[in-house]
Simulated scan of single mutants.
Amino acid sequence: MTFVSSSKDTHNLTFTLVTEFDAAKERVWDVWEDPRKLERWWGPPGWPATFGRHEFHPGGLCHYWMTGPDGEKAYGWWRFLAISPHDRLEIEDGFANEDGSPLDPEDSATFTVTFEEAGAGTRMTTVSAFRSLEQLERMAEMGMEEGMKEASGQIDAILAEAQAVR
């Protein structure tokens, strides 16, 4: 992965992460569509994810948890708002209870992931949009930027394996 940029925009209540991968859009897309691949990179190193539910279609729900080194679990949920294969995902997400239900339905955010050709590879841009400045700042304080960079940094290994199999 090549890290391109990250930025926090307090005026528009967004956080943006831009990365590039040495792989075609279809292969980068697959690390979102295939829940077993998604599990291998969604959590930052040391906090692997498990997707108990992964309904990859508009309106589909996901329930996942990340498990820390000491066994602590952090639960989350997603709802796919829009899916344009190999080009764009729009997802509502939030913290969840152990059963996958939203911890606080009013505390959700959305993120949009776009995939563009970049030379021989793919540029993946993730824009997280928040409901309030307080929510954006809270997520920043929780280490969202570093966590997203570290998590995205795990995608290259998955792409390399997929290439070796071909």
Rank of each mutant, 00 (worst) to 15 (best):
Y64P: 04
L89E: 02
D99Q: 10
F56L: 15
C62S: 15
L103G: 01
W42N: 07
E116R: 14
P44K: 03
V18N: 07
T16L: 06
E72R: 13
P102R: 07
A82V: 09
G52R: 12
L61I: 13
E55H: 03
F80S: 01
N97L: 14
G43R: 05
F56R: 02
R36L: 13
D107I: 00
T114H: 00
P69N: 13
W41M: 08
E55G: 09
G100S: 10
F51K: 06
P102N: 09
E106I: 02
I83N: 06
G60L: 11
E116P: 03
R88K: 15
K25E: 04
G100R: 05
F56T: 08
A82W: 01
S84Y: 00
E106G: 08
H54V: 06
G43K: 10
G76I: 01
L81Y: 05
W32A: 05
G60V: 10
T16V: 14
H86V: 14
D104E: 04
E92V: 04
R36Y: 07
G94T: 11
W77G: 06
D99G: 12
D70P: 07
Y64G: 14
A118Y: 09
T67W: 00
G76Y: 09
E98V: 14
S108E: 00
T16Y: 07
C62A: 15
V113L: 07
K25V: 08
V113Q: 02
E92G: 00
V28I: 11
W78F: 15
Y75N: 01
E55N: 06
W32D: 02
L17V: 12
H57C: 07
E98Q: 14
T50G: 04
T67P: 07
E26I: 12
G52W: 03
G71S: 10
Y75Q: 07
W42F: 15
G46P: 04
T112R: 03
F80R: 00
H54R: 07
G68P: 09
R79H: 04
A82I: 06
L89D: 03
F56K: 02
V113W: 02
V18Y: 01
W42K: 04
G60R: 01
P85S: 10
F51D: 03
I83F: 02
T67M: 10
M66P: 10
L81A: 09
P45H: 14
F80P: 03
P45R: 12
E55P: 04
P48T: 09
P85C: 12
L89Q: 00
F80K: 00
D30R: 13
E26K: 14
P69C: 01
F80G: 03
E39Y: 05
R88V: 05
W42R: 02
T112G: 01
E39M: 01
T19R: 14
E90A: 11
A82F: 04
D93Q: 13
G46K: 07
T16E: 13
G46Y: 10
D87C: 09
P48C: 11
L89Y: 05
E39N: 13
D87A: 15
G68M: 12
A96L: 10
A74H: 10
E90G: 05
G60I: 10
E55F: 04
P85G: 11
